[in-house]
């Protein structure tokens, strides 16, 4: 029974399945895979299962089953509703606990001995972008867009985005994304080296599966050694990011920014 639960799970926000040596983690929380408590709980279940899956698999593919995209990032509505009634100190404590939990999950995916592939399309924003950045490869369909909109709310990315983006790209493009809050299309993301394969609309998962099938031919121990050598986890910067985020979260401008987003009844909350 336990083995069955490990190899396959259909959750409310996500599902996973082990098939022919490849684990596929599918996100499907409406409307756009926002990462809140539900998604985090199920990601933690996945991480619990991943330890067993790692013995039976060589690759992990993370993708979305929703048309809107890979993920719109943190669930800002939940964050606003849950934190608003709390006194400032408790609000900060709760946010830190949430961040520590999500960091544990993302660090596990980042450090997994499996070769990990994010197959992305559509909106890949904020925490969704940060989830993709934990993967070894990003395969993007040409309709994908990447963005760190956090500065619009008076925050920095809190799920490890800056240290991981810095690990992968030059500081100039990191500053551009972070400080302007603008979104990049997949073509540009491929040009700057963020996306390893740019594919046609609707093709990201198919290409990710073909890539996984190829890399499963390699000796696992060699692949694990190569990954360990080339992909250090920036743990100290990740810890500092949590501190800076919590410090900023205590500022009144953040509550105001969240309130504006949540109460925005126009069609434009995801635009600057």
């Amino acid at each position: 029974m336990e083995a069955e639960i490990t190899e396959r799970l259909q959750g409310e926000a996500l599902s996973w399945e082990l098939k022919e040596g490849v684990v596929e983690l599918a996100l499907h929380r409406q409307p756009a895979n926002e990462i809140g408590t539900l998604m985090l709980n199920e990601l933690e279940m996945f991480i619990g299962a991943l330890k067993c899956l790692e013995d039976q698999a060589c690759a992990l593919i993370i993708h979305s089953q929703l048309p809107a995209g890979f993920s719109a990032g943190a669930d800002l509505r939940e964050l606003y509703e849950k934190s608003r009634p709390l006194p400032a100190e408790e609000r900060s404590r709760q946010v830190r606990l949430f961040l520590q939990r999500i960091h544990r999950v993302l660090n596990c995916i980042d450090a997994s001995p499996l070769t990990t592939i994010a197959a992305v399309h559509g909106v890949t924003f904020g925490g969704g972008f940060e989830l993709a950045l934990t993967c070894d490869l990003i395969i993007a369909d040409k309709m994908a867009r990447f963005c760190f909109p956090e500065l619009r709310l008076g925050l920095i990315p809190g799920f490890g985005g800056i240290p991981r983006l810095k690990r992968d790209l030059g500081n100039g493009i990191v500053r551009d994304l972070l400080l302007t809050g603008r979104s990049l299309n997949a073509q540009k993301a491929a040009t700057v080296g963020l996306v390893s394969q740019l594919v046609g609309e609707g093709e990201a998962l198919r290409v990710a599966r073909a890539t996984a099938a190829q890399l499963c031919k390699f000796d696992r121990r060699t692949a694990i050694a190569a990954k360990k050598f080339i992909k250090p986890i920036p743990l100290e910067e990740l810890r500092r990011e949590i501190d800076i985020f919590c410090e900023l979260f205590a500022q009144p401008a953040v509550e105001e920014g969240l309130r504006r987003f949540v109460q925005n009844s126009t069609a434009q909350p995801y635009l600057p």
Partner: peptide
């Protein structure tokens, strides 16, 4: 359309015209 679909329109336009249009220019 909503803002997510507006971003889809923006991406289609960027791909069609081979330009980069920062989304803040759509403010």
């Amino acid at each position: 359309i909503d803002s997510l679909q507006a971003l889809e329109l923006l991406t289609r336009l960027e791909n069609h015209f081979h330009v980069e249009l920062p989304d803040y220019e759509l403010q």
